[in-house]
Every structure is written in structure tokens, then in C-alpha cells.
Design a protein around this nucleic acid. Sequence first.
DNA 1: GCCAACGTTGGC
DNA 2: GCCAACGTTGGC
Length: 134
Amino acid sequence: MAYWIVKSDPESYSWEQMKFDRQTFWNGVRNYQARNNLKLMREGDIALFYLSNSDRAIVGELEIVKAHYPDPTTVDERWVCVDVKYKRDYKTPLTLQEMKSKKGFENIGLIKQSRLSVMPITAKEYKLILSFVE
DNA sequence: GCCAACGTTGGC
DNA sequence: GCCAACGTTGGC
């Protein structure tokens, strides 16, 4: 089982919308590196939901319920999406600022490669994040 | 709103 | 295949 962070701009797809939808397909990725990460996702993996721009925090988690398939919102066959399901809210969202100020996040993609929208995190980083949000 | 980082495109 | 120009993302 692998752990991921997926990013969303709250103005285009909010956490409220995600919870309302319960399950959706994670589409619109138009970046090779992010696409490659989508392709590595397996059913049962966990994806943490990060809000960029105004919010800048990890607010909860999703479960991957279907591995990658062609993105139906484009005819360009290069791009894929996966199906995700709402899993749970975190009691306390973990902000980017907090991650920057705490130990253990030095190598997390969220900070090192801020423009990447789908990225893996290690089991260790996942546990560390959980220790702040429960 | 600005700008740094970085990905993509296209001319050569 | 290089690189300048340009576009986009996202933190501040």
C-alpha cells in the first residue's frame, strides 16, 4: 500500500465538494510527472487531500478505488485519471506553514516541488502527518 | 497582485 | 538537440 498527496485548488474543486460527491474521478492532470504518479496508484492506496492557494493545508484523506484509466475529459490519450473515494476528515488540518516549521518534512514533495500536483509520500511521512492531525 | 520555479513549445 | 520565449502554478 502506498501513500500520496493530491492537490486541489479550492476554487476549482473544494473539500466540501469532495465530501458531497463522496466518490469522483481525479481528472485534469496535464503534467507528465503527476500523470506518472497517477499510473502508479493502486486500489486501496491512500491519498491525502491538500488544498493549495488560499487554504494551504492537508484536510483529510481519500482512498483510491480504481487504478488509472484514460481521462474521459480529453481525447488526448496521454492523460489518465483514477477513481477516489472520500475516507475521512482530519480533526486538525495540517498547514503548509506547520510542515515547514516541524522536523521530518524536509524532503516532502509538497515543499521541495511545490508545483507538482500528485506526489508520493513515504509511510514514515504519512505517520508523521497523522501525528499532527488526529 | 507579484514573482519564482518550472514545464512546454517551437525556431534554429 | 539546444535554448529562448512563453505559460502556468502556487506561495507569499
